[in-house]
Design a protein around this nucleic acid. Structure first.
Length: 410
DNA sequence: ACGTCGTTGTACAA
DNA sequence: TTGTACAACGACGT
């Protein structure tokens, strides 16, 4: 540490080599975490290198060295009045943050990803090391082995996929599948992606993007995204489910674009992979499991402190109405200085009816996908494939019930 | 052909 | 706090 500069990061951006895993699997990327783990095995040891000085800038060839672009040049307006996100960049900060997280050994060895609290924002429930991994400030292999060191010092610790090391393996899983899947970042031409007739509704999409859906839990998350560039993974799940298969039935690619732009940890493979997951387009298919935009947040944060912080107009709404302010009597709304429909929007959809409709549409889309894959299996020619163009009224209307019945037996 | 299982659902019961 | 119905998908292994 003395005068030398320790550089931990350049060792490797991933634990494994995606190409190697795909070739071990017969040229196809593993599509489940379990099969990925079985093929991958143990990650190699990290190589720590020490340099006495920063490496020189290499030959830039024909390229001109330009100054660092300004915030404005990167497409952002006046940010002087913005809430400052609580995260700082750089390798030093990454290592400090990692050490701080790993110091709490009990927390490390009991870590189970699905059990975190998405409403925790003063002290996030996860490490918030994803931005540092994304920018190469922290080596995945180094982090992995530091966690292993903690595991070695105790009797019991959680295991993948839910454990802390499990999260790094998920990262490699998405790198591997995305590497081996043509058109991974879109629905069309993507073999592992369910073809779903998402609806186009710019108004609903904009309401979601700008945190004006009328569901405080959803809107608070989208506002945290805009202000901090980070939110808890279960919060991401809530809003991703709401946009796609849960309520609005809008294309996951639209949500993906918003996340890609606003998240400080947005990573091409992981972001697309998770949108495929949450929209039930790939990896995950239990589309009847829908997050409630009302009760999901409530179970972690019944008082709505998270909502009150990110949506100040709702800060005086009584606890019993904070997740459903449109149900508050007008007298209460007046007292809280927040009239629904004026100071804060009414819900853009009714969750009960919208989610029911989404389930139905997902069922129909899945049936058509089954039919399509079955018929192309028997006769791989393009002629036998059912056309799903907009002109095909027959497939999109009356015959769906028939398709639902027959698709399994064909 | 069939059974098992899947990182992260909800509402209600006991 | 833990268990169950709900209604049910598809990758994978046998």
């Amino acid at each position: 540490m003395a005068s030398g500069i320790e550089v931990f990061t350049p060792v490797s951006h991933t634990l494994f080599d995606p190409a190697e895993i795909i070739s071990k699997n017969g040229g196809r990327p593993p599509l489940t975490y379990q099969s990925f783990i079985a093929i991958a095995g143990e990650p190699p040891e990290p190589v720590l290198e020490e340099y006495s000085e920063l490496p020189p800038v290499g030959d830039t060839g024909e390229y001109e060295l330009l100054p660092v672009p300004t915030v404005e040049e990167l497409g952002y307006g006046d940010i002087s009045q913005e809430e400052i996100p609580p995260f700082r960049g750089g390798e030093t900060e990454a290592l400090r943050r990692m050490k701080e997280s790993l110091q709490d050994k009990e927390w490390v060895v009991k870590f189970e990803k699905p059990k975190g609290d998405p409403s925790a924002f003063l002290k996030p429930a996860t490490t918030v090391l994803s931005p540092y991994l994304k920018f190469g400030c922290l080596s995945s292999r180094y982090f992995y082995h530091c966690i292993q060191d903690v595991y070695r010092s105790v009797r019991n610790y959680t295991k993948p996929p839910v454990s802390l090391t499990g999260q790094l393996l998920w990262r490699d899983f998405f790198y591997t599948v995305s590497f081996g899947t043509p058109n991974f970042d879109q629905m069309k031409g993507n073999k592992i992606c369910k073809q779903i007739p998402w609806s186009e509704n710019e108004e609903l999409f904009v309401a979601w993007r700008d945190g004006r859906t009328g569901y405080p839990w959803i809107d608070a998350i989208m506002i945290q995204l805009r202000k901090w560039g980070w939110m808890h993974h279960l919060a991401r799940h809530s809003v991703a489910c709401f946009l796609t298969r849960g309520d609005l039935f809008i294309h996951w690619e639209k949500g993906r674009d918003v996340f890609e732009r606003l998240l400080i940890d947005s990573d091409w493979a992981i972001n697309n992979g998770n949108w495929l997951w949450l929209s039930c387009s790939s990896f995950f298919c239990q589309y009847h499991r829908i997050y409630s935009p009302v009760t999901f947040g409530k179970k972690y944060d019944p008082n709505g402190n998270y909502i009150r912080h990110f949506i100040p107009v709702l800060k005086d709404m009584p606890r019993e109405y904070i997740y459903e302010p449109w149900t508050a009597p007008l007298s209460i709304q007046k007292k809280a200085k927040c009239i629904i429909g004026k100071d804060y929007p009414k819900p853009v959809v009714d969750h009960e009816t919208a989610s029911k409709e989404c389930r139905k549409r997902m069922g129909e889309a899945y049936a058509l996908n089954r039919l399509d894959s079955n018929s192309s299996k028997g006769k791989p020619s393009n002629l036998s494939r059912r056309k799903m163009s907009h002109g095909d009224q027959d497939a999109s209307n009356s015959s769906i019930a028939k398709l639902l019945k027959t698709s399994r037996s064909e």
